[in-house]
Amino acid sequence: MTREAEVTVTEVLAELAALEDPKVRAINERHGDDHGVNLGKLRALAKRLKTQQELSYQLWKTGDTAARLLALLICRPKAFERDELDAMMREARRPKVHDWLVNYVVKKSPHAEELRQAWFADPDPVVASAGWALTADRVTKRPEGLDLAGLLDIIEAEMKDAPDRLQWAMNSCLAQIGIDHPEHRARAVDIGERLEVLKDYPTSPGCTSPYAPIWIGEMVRRQQDQAS
């Protein structure tokens, strides 16, 4: 690492430390995240820094959650090799880091499909949840070649007892199958009703419940309203 990069990382870490807010940290910690930086301020910092791949690498290496979130905002997703992304995913234990790594980086990578297949049945449920998140994205955007009935078989057999983050990703896949593929909708709703996963999840006013039967019904209704 060059002296210039070292100074830059030091300066950025100091700026992140200055943005630390105990109230924000308390809220984030309830969701499993260990940082206290307001995400709006984090995004503003990323916008000012612009894309800097080398700085992104160095920020990621610090292991600090806020630094890693910033790293994911200023990186070039297509610059990462497949094995680099795999290693990053296995290090991404905090929910927000995991979510941003999947959505902001891996989905834009030329290695996305290869990683989806590799992660889908990984014995680590956190890594497997990334595979399911990428699968849900394909269900919506590029379903050709996916065995949707087979995915429903796995969801029906395994989602009820899956660890939380994996369960959430499988449930999202279930909902997307029901929303985007009418031929599988009745079965997707039936699976959701029988398993009752996230049925009692607290939902803010104006937001759609993650309980698959409600989620599917609401999104299909919106599609129909738009079409009429």
Rank of each mutant, 00 (worst) to 15 (best):
P95H: 06
Q223P: 03
P202M: 13
T203Y: 14
E196G: 09
D153C: 06
T140L: 10
R76H: 14
T208W: 07
E158S: 03
W168A: 13
K78E: 15
L115P: 01
L152C: 08
D86K: 08
K108P: 00
C207A: 12
T10K: 01
P163V: 06
E6I: 02
Y57P: 07
Q53I: 05
E11H: 01
V220D: 12
S172T: 12
A128R: 10
Q58A: 00
A44D: 06
L152M: 03
D200C: 09
T10S: 11
I179L: 06
A212I: 05
R48K: 12
A169M: 11
E158I: 04
L59P: 02
E158A: 10
L39W: 10
C75R: 05
A46N: 02
E183Y: 06
C75G: 01
P163Q: 13
L70T: 00
N38F: 15
L70Q: 08
I74S: 08
G36F: 12
A112R: 14
V189I: 15
E15L: 05
A157D: 13
T140P: 00
G178V: 15
V189H: 10
A71P: 05
A26C: 01
A186K: 14
S209D: 01
A44S: 14
L198V: 00
V7L: 11
Y201P: 07
S129L: 04
N28L: 00
K50D: 02
I214M: 03
A175M: 15
E4I: 05
A26S: 12
H98C: 00
Y211A: 14
A71K: 00
D86T: 12
K108I: 01
E20C: 07
G32S: 07
M89I: 09
S228G: 15
A92N: 03
D86H: 14
L148V: 00
Q52H: 11
H111I: 01
A149V: 02
Q167V: 01
V127H: 06
V189P: 01
L198R: 13
R25W: 04
L198G: 00
V105R: 14
E196S: 14
D83E: 15
D34H: 15
E81P: 04
R48G: 02
W60C: 00
A121D: 15
V197G: 13
Q117T: 07
E91Y: 12
L16G: 02
L16N: 03
V127R: 06
E158R: 08
H98M: 11
W215I: 09
A18G: 00
V97Y: 05
G145D: 01
R3C: 04
C207S: 09
K160H: 14
R82N: 08
K23E: 10
Q176Y: 14
R138K: 11
S204I: 08
T65R: 14
S109G: 06
F120L: 09
L39T: 15
K160G: 02
V197M: 12
P202Y: 10
P125M: 11
V24Y: 08
L59A: 08
R94H: 11
L198E: 07
G145L: 04
E29A: 09
P163L: 07
